[in-house]
Computed example of a mutant assay.
Amino acid sequence: MSGPHTTVLSVPFDSAERARRVERSVRPEIGAIDGDRTTATLVREGDTVEITVTADDLVALRAGCNTWLTLVGTAERADTGAGTVQSTREG
């Protein structure tokens, strides 16, 4: 069966502010990493980020979903770590 195939990745966060920071981190990739077979759109509503991945075939859909889940996960981890950085400067 040929495409288009679509999946919506809905990622809830503990606050709208955190969802906004993650959204702003991954938004520049919309359009930049689209391929010949896959595209994505990004929407944030409150504390939830939704990415819709559309692909011509199931292999491309899986690759697109993996890419976006990795990007969101990385942005989420970076956001978590941002609040824990401490200065090592003395004095």
Rank of each mutant, 00 (worst) to 15 (best):
G3S: 07
P28E: 11
A32C: 01
S15T: 14
V72Q: 00
D34S: 12
I51V: 15
M1Y: 01
I51W: 03
M1V: 11
R62W: 00
A63L: 13
R62K: 12
E45K: 05
S2R: 06
T52F: 03
A75I: 06
T54D: 01
E76H: 09
Q86I: 07
I33R: 14
G35F: 04
A82W: 05
M1P: 09
D34N: 14
V43H: 04
A75C: 07
E23Q: 15
G64P: 06
R20V: 07
G46W: 07
V49C: 09
A63R: 14
L58T: 13
L42R: 12
P12I: 05
S25N: 12
S25H: 13
E17A: 15
G3D: 00
C65N: 13
V72C: 05
A63P: 01
L58K: 08
T48G: 04
G31D: 08
P12F: 05
T48F: 02
P12T: 06
R18Q: 13
P12S: 07
T41C: 03
E76C: 02
G83W: 02
G81Y: 05
D36P: 10
R37A: 13
E23W: 09
G35W: 02
A60E: 07
S10E: 15
H5C: 01
G83E: 12
T67M: 08
S15G: 13
E17G: 10
P28Y: 02
P12N: 05
